[in-house]
Computed example of a mutant assay.
Amino acid sequence: MSSLVGGAAVNSAFAIDDIERGAGGSDDPVGGGADGENLMASVSHSKIVIKGAGGEQSKVRTGALASVDPNWVPPACWYEPVFSPKQLKSAVESGRGGYVNAHEWWSNGIFVDHYDKGEPDEDLNVNTGRRSTAKGYKNYNVGKDGMFWRSVVAKGHDFDRKAWDCGRIMFWQDAGTVPDDKHAPTPEVLASYAYDKIRVPDTEVELNPKARSTVNLPTWAWLDKGKFKDVKVRAELPGTGLWAETTAKPVGLHLEPGTKDAELHPGSGECAINGDGSIGTPYTKGQGSKTPPCGITYLRATSGKPYAMKASVTWEVSWEGSGGAKGDLPNGTFETTQDVNVQELQAVDR
Rank of each mutant, 00 (worst) to 15 (best):
S3T: 08
V10P: 00
F14S: 09
D17K: 04
D18G: 01
R21M: 08
A23I: 12
G25F: 01
D27E: 11
D28L: 11
V30D: 06
V30W: 14
A34P: 13
A34E: 09
N38M: 13
N38E: 15
L39A: 12
S42D: 14
I48N: 07
G52N: 10
G54R: 02
T62H: 05
T62E: 11
A64N: 00
S67W: 04
V68Y: 04
P75N: 15
P81Y: 11
L88M: 13
K89V: 05
R96E: 13
G97V: 15
V100E: 11
V100A: 15
V100P: 06
N101D: 14
W106A: 03
W106V: 09
S107M: 06
G109T: 05
G109E: 03
V112T: 00
V112C: 06
H114M: 01
D116P: 01
P120R: 01
D123C: 02
N125S: 14
V126T: 15
T128I: 09
R130S: 14
R130A: 14
S132H: 13
G136R: 03
K138R: 02
K138G: 07
G143L: 07
K144Y: 05
M147P: 03
M147R: 02
W149N: 06
R150M: 15
V153H: 12
A154L: 00
F159E: 15
M170V: 02
W172K: 03
Q173V: 14
Q173G: 06
G176W: 12
V178W: 07
A184V: 09
A184S: 09
P185A: 06
V189F: 05
D196T: 14
I198D: 04
N208E: 15
L217D: 11
V231Y: 00
K232M: 06
K232R: 10
V233D: 00
R234A: 04
G241D: 13
A244Y: 05
A244Q: 04
E245F: 07
P250L: 03
L253N: 05
G258I: 08
T259H: 04
K260G: 14
S268H: 01
S268M: 06
I273Q: 07
G275I: 10
G275C: 09
G277S: 07
S278N: 04
Y283M: 08
T284H: 09
K285P: 04
G288R: 10
P292E: 11
G295D: 10
L299M: 09
S303K: 06
P306E: 04
M309Y: 02
K310F: 04
E316H: 06
G327K: 07
G327M: 12
D328R: 14
D328S: 14
P330D: 10
E335H: 05
E335N: 07
T336I: 15
Q338G: 09
Q338P: 04
L345M: 07
